[in-house]
Simulated scan of single mutants.
Amino acid sequence: MFTGIIEELGTVAAIDHLDDSAVITIDAEGLVDDLGLGGSLAVNGVCLTSVRTGDASPPGSATAESPGTSGAESSGSLTAEVPCPFIAEVMGETLRLTGLGALRPGDRVNLERCTPAAGRFDGHVVQGHVDGCGELLSRDDYGQWSTLRIGIPYSLAPYTAIKGSIALNGVSLTLTAVSEPTEASAWVEVGLIPATLTHTTFGDLAPGNPVNVEVDVLAKYTARLLSFGTTPDTTTVFNSTNATRQGADHG
């Protein structure tokens, strides 16, 4: 679990494209020095798992001695050139449904380590499970702040509300405006202070750039519950299970 409070800006060092997946290497500026095999890192809001086992690169990745798997398309710096990098394997579905597929070597990305149990909770509940990919429609830059309008998939619009929470490219933000249900296209707006623009990738985001969208998990569970039209009676479910088990025992 994450909170949407970005800890560091990383840089994409390399992307090795395979048939329907990719291996992405990120220079995480020391954030992952103690992150070993199986550790989690949110990259632009996408929860990825480290495949690093202590050396600079995972089995089968490109190195100075080995050009990589036959048929793989490699771009950017070699993984061995980045000290203590974060390396993750990304399947094709993730590449297609998030903005990770559009990343190129040299791109900056928002990074957040998973939240420790005893840590301070400063943002909102962020799972790192991106619900859809939107794009920046427009931005208005003022003297001390900026307003960004992001187009989102229409199916996500019901989970948005003014003053509600949303994670955009992994950043926990408060919605300042949302589209009306009658509008053909869905969008949300956020207001960003200089600190957010400086310490996240939003300072460089241009119209047309993809934006990973994760709506509030509480809104998703609420909608799921309401879709059944009634509150499930967990006591009845439990007793029914026990009765079934007792009947089987006496049979």
Score class of each variant (00 low, 15 high):
162 I>R: 15
156 L>F: 13
193 I>W: 11
136 L>G: 02
206 A>V: 10
136 L>M: 12
138 S>G: 01
193 I>T: 03
198 T>S: 05
174 T>R: 09
177 A>C: 05
123 G>V: 02
167 A>W: 12
127 Q>N: 05
147 T>G: 07
154 Y>W: 15
137 L>N: 03
143 G>E: 03
147 T>K: 11
190 V>F: 06
208 G>E: 00
138 S>W: 08
123 G>D: 01
156 L>Q: 07
144 Q>L: 07
206 A>G: 06
210 P>M: 08
188 V>Q: 04
131 D>Y: 04
161 A>V: 13
205 L>I: 12
163 K>H: 13
148 L>A: 05
171 V>F: 02
182 T>D: 03
126 V>Y: 02
139 R>F: 03
158 P>N: 12
199 H>E: 04
205 L>F: 02
127 Q>G: 07
158 P>W: 14
196 T>Q: 02
174 T>I: 05
206 A>T: 10
127 Q>C: 13
146 S>Q: 05
150 I>P: 00
124 H>P: 03
209 N>T: 08
179 S>Y: 02
138 S>P: 04
208 G>P: 04
142 Y>H: 13
137 L>C: 07
124 H>D: 00
206 A>L: 12
180 E>L: 11
196 T>H: 05
151 G>P: 00
199 H>D: 01
156 L>K: 12
200 T>M: 01
187 W>R: 01
202 F>V: 00
163 K>R: 15
130 V>G: 02
199 H>P: 00
189 E>R: 15
149 R>Y: 03
177 A>W: 02
185 S>G: 05
145 W>C: 05
130 V>K: 11
135 E>G: 07
138 S>V: 04
174 T>F: 08
200 T>F: 01
152 I>M: 04
194 P>A: 06
193 I>F: 08
188 V>A: 10
161 A>H: 12
168 L>I: 10
144 Q>A: 12
153 P>L: 14
202 F>C: 00
207 P>F: 06
141 D>W: 08
182 T>I: 06
189 E>S: 09
159 Y>V: 02
156 L>A: 13
130 V>R: 00
148 L>G: 01
130 V>L: 01
159 Y>E: 12
127 Q>Y: 09
205 L>S: 12
207 P>S: 09
191 G>H: 04
163 K>Y: 15
205 L>H: 05
177 A>T: 02
134 G>Y: 08
138 S>Q: 08
205 L>G: 04
189 E>L: 04
175 L>K: 03
159 Y>K: 09
156 L>G: 03
167 A>F: 09
137 L>S: 11
186 A>K: 03
175 L>G: 00
209 N>A: 15
189 E>I: 14
162 I>V: 15
204 D>Y: 05
146 S>N: 06
168 L>C: 14
147 T>V: 14
136 L>I: 06
204 D>G: 09
167 A>G: 12
176 T>R: 00
121 F>L: 14
127 Q>E: 01
158 P>L: 14
126 V>D: 02
121 F>K: 13
193 I>N: 09
189 E>W: 05
151 G>V: 11
162 I>K: 14
128 G>P: 06
144 Q>D: 14
170 G>R: 13
140 D>L: 15
137 L>H: 10
196 T>W: 03
200 T>R: 06
136 L>E: 01
190 V>D: 00
171 V>A: 08
189 E>V: 07
186 A>E: 06
158 P>E: 11
209 N>R: 14
125 V>W: 09
211 V>D: 01
128 G>I: 06
147 T>L: 10
146 S>V: 04
162 I>W: 06
181 P>L: 03
